[in-house]
Nucleic acid binder design. Structure first.
Lengths: 349, 349
DNA sequence: CTGAAAGCGCTTACAG
DNA sequence: CTGAAAGCGCTTACAG
């Protein structure tokens, strides 16, 4: 029975949707496969004349080396993964860009993924990236159990955690001084005469949220102020929740005269609520905002340097990959208090 | 001569840095390679007992399928590339996230890259992504010649341009109505009594910049106003350049009474400069800003929906990949004028 | 239900 | 200076 002719019967013709390979180039140039490989990779040991012929075939065929195949053979993929919470959050843009730049300097591409603050999705993403055999992984954890990564790390995947430490495993992490920054910010409010100070933060299971709350508590304790439960609110950072929280601590029998906002998502809503109040309420916010200095009053913030965090994490990742067998380390980056007016308002009563 | 023993001599043991393969799993479970493949991919036709043995071997070895190898065989990589200007720019975060979400719905990962507004880097990035054999490419062009992509597109790489059209090739693109938006914004200023209106935009070779300038010119013409050269300034969006441009058109013999800002990078600097002026200068800005409504006065903007743009582009990309052989199309998304105060200020003279 | 062989497109280790 | 063979870790197309 005669075979049905297939498109594959024309092995050296570039078929639509099927890309030319080194084999096609070799056939057209009348040379061996290895010679094509030499030209494509700029290796020495090819006559100028041979090189010209190969190059001609490459151009005519529109050949581009398939890096997937290359990678399969070489072992390293020259790509790193970044799992973060939400690329649309202004904190992660600069962080991601910084990681990208370091990766680029090392010839690597960056695969981004958003966990949407969902631990399952974080795991799914991180493991999908491992299946793609990224050389390394920068993770902003959503979950608090990362033992699922143990086989991957043992297999050689470089890993650095950012913004929050890993759970259940020993790994590098790069953090801001959340505790110290919050403590300093709250102390700043105390220094300006406040005693009833509110704290609105993210969900308590998130490391940064709990650390910043701890900073708040410590600063209050330092000042000898007994904190009332009604002054603290942790939870989701959606506008509705934050608005409710702010309005509650601003009303009632002992309303706060100042608010410490736990992160940039919270801050945008708190600013809106404070603008609606009849009396002036002081504000210090964790995380800087682009137009914070142009508001009236300017927003006093405890700023983190997202780009520096990303850069530090990526540097560390490539140090791991370069074989500097470093012990896992916890790197804490300082925050910076920037006084702009809102944090220097005196108590309204 | 006896061979030197190598680590590879223990083929079924998971070596550090060398990951276990299906072959290792097969050996350990005492089954064939194809059976492992069946279990890993959840295919039918495996006895529960066999499946259990294979699963045990997988867990014991810490096996994870190498998707690079899989991809090489299957043809599609289930990944798409996104080349944008700068991930740290607040316009691109939501756009990128939207592309990611659509990709995720189609089971694909997203590789991000920043061109830094450099045409050479755009090309380098786009071609590197093609070498990785991404299935599709979303590109926010930095350059204006994209013929370098012709072989890739012919070879089947789906391609959608965003924010600016492709140059030299016929390809899908998704744009905002830059001309119409700018025209409407400037007309808004005219309607509030302004005649000397300045325009500060990005470099003229950038499509959005020239289109918005055209919208400005048309609105002025519509109003019968002769535009003076000194009222228009196009160039890099760094603060120093924008500040100089703004200060120049605000001084001199016929200073402008209103400014139309060409994009979000320009706007942040213009707001700063205007805040320093002794007289009130009206402002309408292309692109929304997070705290724009909280400034005093609120900033009137012509808003684009970055997420909708990203979503539309990604949808189109996957429609191409799904084989809907569509003709290249130019999709224009409407903008929205949001009046907040700064655009409704009357002329100061 | 199960598996051996061939092949995806490259690179590596050799040999000429 | 050049190239044939083997192999990276999977899947495909068959055969039993």
């Amino acid at each position: 029975m005669p075979e049905t002719p297939r498109r594959a019967d024309r092995p050296s013709a570039p078929r639509y949707g099927n890309r030319p390979t080194m084999k096609d180039v070799a056939a057209r140039a009348g040379v061996g496969l290895k010679t094509v490989s030499r030209v494509v990779n700029g290796e020495s040991g090819v006559t100028p004349e041979t090189e010209r012929r190969v190059q001609e075939a490459i151009d005519a065929l529109g050949f581009r080396r398939n890096d997937s195949a290359r990678v399969l053979r070489k072992g390293r993929t020259a790509s790193v993964g970044l799992v973060l919470e939400d690329l649309a959050d202004p904190f992660y843009g600069p962080l991601s860009r910084a990681v990208e730049e370091v990766a680029r300097a090392h010839g690597a591409l960056l695969i981004n993924g958003s966990s949407a603050e969902d631990p399952d999705r974080e795991q799914e993403l991180a493991l999908a990236l491992c299946a793609r055999r990224v050389d390394g992984l920068v993770i902003i954890p959503a979950g608090d159990d990362h033992r699922y990564l143990e086989p991957e790390i043992k297999a050689g995947v470089a890993t650095v955690f950012v913004d929050r430490p890993a759970g259940g495993i020993d790994a590098d992490c790069v953090l801001s001084d959340n505790f110290g920054g919050a403590r300093q910010g709250v102390a700043h409010l105390v220094a300006h005469g406040h005693r009833r100070i509110g704290f609105i933060g993210d969900m308590p299971r998130i490391h940064t949220a709990s650390e910043r709350l701890r900073g708040y508590r410590t600063a209050m304790e330092d000042a000898g102020i007994a904190v009332e439960d009604a002054w603290m609110s942790l939870g989701a950072t959606d506008p509705a929740r934050v608005r409710r929280a702010a309005e509650e601590m601003l009303s009632g029998p002992s309303p706060v005269t100042a608010v410490f906002s736990g992160n940039n998502r919270v801050t945008v809503t708190v600013i809106r609520v404070l603008a609606e109040q009849s009396r002036r309420v002081a504000l210090v916010a964790f995380d800087d905002l682009e137009l914070a200095d142009l508001l009236q009053p300017g927003v006093t913030v405890v700023a983190q340097d997202a780009a520096a965090i990303g850069r530090t994490a990526a540097d560390r990742l490539f140090r791991q990959l370069d074989g500097a067998l470093l012990l896992p380390e916890r790197i804490e980056l300082p925050t910076r208090l920037i006084a702009r007016g809102s944090g220097e308002l005196p108590p309204a009563d």
